[in-house]
Amino acid sequence: MGLLRKEGDRTQCLSEQQFYQLREGAMVIEKDGYGEKVLHLPDSSFLKLFRQRHFFSISRIFPYSLRFIRNTIQLSERGIPTVTVKGYYRIPSIRRTAVQYQPLPGETLRKVFLSIDKPEEQTGLLQRVAHFVALLHRKGVYFRSLHMGNILVQPDGELGLIDIADMRCYRHSLSESFRLRNFRHMARYRSDAELLLKNSLFSATYASLTDLEADKIDHVMETTKSR
Rank of each mutant, 00 (worst) to 15 (best):
T205R: 14
L195V: 09
H54T: 04
R96Q: 13
R168P: 00
Y20S: 11
I91W: 04
D156E: 13
F55E: 14
F19T: 02
K6E: 15
D43G: 02
N71C: 05
I58N: 09
Y64C: 05
D192N: 09
H185P: 05
L212M: 12
G149Y: 04
S177Y: 13
M27K: 15
D117R: 15
L66W: 01
Y142L: 09
P103T: 05
Y206D: 01
L41G: 02
L22P: 03
Q74I: 00
E194N: 09
K198E: 15
D32Y: 10
L174Y: 00
F50T: 01
S203V: 08
G35C: 08
K118C: 12
E158D: 10
V85H: 10
R51Y: 15
S200M: 12
Q102P: 05
G157K: 04
F113H: 03
K86Y: 03
Y20G: 01
N150E: 11
Q12M: 10
R184M: 04
Q18P: 00
F19P: 03
K111S: 12
Y189C: 07
K31F: 11
S177Q: 14
P119C: 13
F68K: 00
I162V: 14
A130D: 05
Y88E: 02
Q18F: 01
Y189I: 13
E36K: 06
M1S: 11
L201Y: 06
F55H: 13
H54L: 12
Q52C: 10
E121I: 05
L197R: 02
I80R: 05
Q74R: 14
G33M: 03
M27Y: 14
K37T: 02
Q122V: 03
G8S: 12
Q122F: 09
S76W: 11
P119V: 09
A165Y: 03
G149T: 02
Y170F: 12
K216G: 02
F178Y: 15
S59K: 06
T210H: 06
S226I: 09
A187D: 02
L22C: 07
I69S: 06
K48I: 03
F68E: 06
K31G: 01
V38R: 01
F143I: 03
A165S: 14
S76L: 06
E7Y: 15
E222C: 04
L104Q: 06
K111N: 15
I80H: 07
R23G: 04
S203T: 02
V83G: 08
S57H: 12
S203F: 04
S173E: 14
A214F: 06
G140H: 06
G149W: 07
R67V: 11
P155Q: 07
V99I: 10
T11F: 10
T72K: 09
E77C: 14
F132E: 04
L75V: 00
V133R: 00
V99D: 02
G35S: 05
D218P: 00
E36D: 15
S115Y: 04
L41H: 07
A130N: 01
S76P: 02
R110C: 06
G87R: 08
D9T: 03
L180S: 11
L180I: 04
E194D: 13
Y20M: 07
R67H: 11
L136H: 09
Q154P: 05
D166H: 14
T210W: 08
Y64L: 13
R95G: 05
S200Y: 08
V83L: 03
R138L: 13
R128A: 07
E120F: 11
Y20E: 10
T11R: 15
